[in-house]
Write a protein that binds this DNA or RNA. Structure first.
Lengths: 329, 329
DNA sequence: ACGCCGGTTGATAACGTTCCCTGATTCGCC
DNA sequence: GGCGAATCAGGGAACGTTATCAACCGGCGT
């Protein structure tokens, strides 16, 4: 900037004004400065700028997800990014792998970089750090899951209710032995889905059979394994509820190539669910809307909106495709 | 920081030293300062720190992809992020939608934020801006595609050769009327794949039939439409080569529910390709390795490695599953 | 008694920008 | 012709840190 000022024969202030498009600089001077800027290839240092500016803001937000490679979070991230782009904000991202320690590190790093706000898919643990950040005025929005005890704006879907409806769908097709295939139980969404599963059964006078419940399935293979094992039991389930897309796909693997007469309903839609030999009935949620909504909530806070925390619950869609509409033998 | 210094009864410098873990502060003083830091909830402003530090570095890199919601780029991004995390770097991400204007904006914004380097999936256009950035010393690595005329490190796969082998596979099964289903021709990867397609045909004495070539398919639906149309022709193709996963899925749609005797080979593997009624033969590439390699190249440059640009070409895998091994009627 | 040394600590200037205020020039207007 | 207002430009301080150097202290050898 000093070089530009010298080249244009003006002061630092004038260069700053021209670079920021402030009014109050004559057309002639503006032109001279602009030319010097172009000739020297000068670019403002935004970090220094934000440091000094009155409105202590960096026009950067942080996004902390479970796993960016997961299409669900990738889509969510893209929606956040689009909303940020629209407002001239940049996005720092990081995955936590659901590790509270890594979440802690990342949130600290983002906060030390002076982000204007955070969108977080909270890990299972406690969130004292996030709480501290919020107490210091950092706007935080939780997406996909709430954080227990944290008074943050939250965007989720009706996990429990959607699961209940899905399991009732199976019950309505006369199934009574319905297996539950779950991911880690520590994760809020999965606790909700399991609760919905139990509520549906009990609502129909069926006591959940612990022998039909598998938690902690972390991969397609683990899910396949679990299903194969379930089906080998003396009294196998006649229907499966799987608690996310990965597990649904694993379940299909586990059932074997020519699908036997076992009903299957899964949480999360996935590409080609409609083109499989037996198209899969699913509960579909829209990660783009979750991300977009979370971003809107965050920016409203950044813009100064002060009010008690808001909790947005988005509707899911139940998509009937065939795999859930099979009666038990 | 001033408050901490006052609370601990020391100078700014001492606080700075303690916060940075510098040696040369007595254990007693360190304890007093640490306590004040904890009590006041002080966090260093990393932006200010980076501004002043001798090593003019922000420990931040920028990642510019086509579309973060696309699982391919999401996986690539995750690999970049992991490598960055390992080194204590943060990652700014942005999607361009293959729009050179948006790429320009994003690269400028990242550079104004003083990122230490850029990993870019370059858009189709010319890259004068990236060139200018590199000339000013910004390390840049291209991933998935090279940027024409830019002397940057590059990580790609053997698009042309892999496609040639895939099409030869079809030729070996006695197909002669092989359709090409392509995305935008402006994108380098797709030009390469199309070239491989042509080379394979010519190598077998088959002159490519323009009537069997479709470029510019941008969605599953468009691909489905194009395939349906092709199959309605008086002399339809007996085999299809589709140039990416989205198009492959669209092609499956377009062929209709009970797949007729038409062979299909696609670029990019995708989940459930193995579980469809007719499992799909594909060319598989590994986006995580692309991202990880790009990150390693970038960090080597950031660490001061000076040498002519390197071009890493990763191997693809050809996965035979059935859809490509169907002979023509 | 003197200089010197290692271990601590602090004062000051700088990083690259913008805020605030002051000064200079011009203009319109009574 | 004088005066306030408007327009334009610059000087200095400040944002929150760290680099550099100087200063202090007790102890050591000579």
């Amino acid at each position: 900037m000093k070089d530009v000022a010298q080249a244009a024969g003006v002061s630092l202030m004038t260069v700053s004004r021209v670079v920021n498009g402030d009014r109050g600089v004559s057309a002639q001077t503006t032109a001279r400065v602009a030319q010097a800027v172009a000739r020297l290839g000068y670019q403002r240092n935004d970090n220094a700028s934000h440091l000094r500016r009155k409105a202590q803001t960096t026009r950067t937000i942080g996004l902390v997800v479970d796993d960016l490679a997961n299409p669900f979070y990738a889509t969510l991230a893209r929606a956040v990014e689009d909303e940020a782009y629209r407002r001239g904000y940049l996005v720092l991202v990081s995955s936590t792998n659901d590790d509270p320690r890594r979440e802690r590190e990342v949130v600290l790093a983002f906060s030390a970089r002076q982000v204007d706000g955070l969108i977080v898919v909270p890990t299972a643990g406690t969130h004292s750090l996030l709480k501290a950040q919020m107490a210091q005025g950092m706007p935080v929005v939780c997406a996909d899951r709430p954080a227990r005890g944290l008074g943050a704006d939250t965007v989720t879907v009706d996990n429990r209710d959607a699961t209940r409806r899905a399991v009732i769908h199976l019950l309505d097709h006369r199934h009574r032995r319905i297996a539950y295939l779950g991911d880690q139980r520590e994760i809020w969404t999965l606790r909700e889905r399991f609760a919905g599963y139990q509520e549906a059964l009990r609502g129909h006078g069926v006591e959940p059979d612990p022998g039909l419940v598998r938690h902690g399935l972390r991969s397609r293979d683990e899910a396949a394994q679990a299903v194969a094992e379930l089906m080998r039991q003396p009294d196998p389930p006649t229907a499966l509820f799987s608690s996310n897309d990965l597990i649904t796909i694993g379940a299909i693997d586990g059932l074997g190539a020519p699908l036997p007469g076992v009903a299957l309903v899964g949480f999360d839609d996935f590409p080609l669910a409609d083109r499989l030999p037996r198209p899969v009935t699913v509960v579909s949620q829209d990660p783009a809307t979750i991300g977009g909504t979370a971003a809107q909530l965050l920016f409203s806070r950044i813009d100064g909106y002060r009010a008690p925390p808001r909790s947005v619950v988005l509707m899911t869609r139940f998509i009937v495709r065939g795999s859930g509409e099979i009666a038990p033998p």
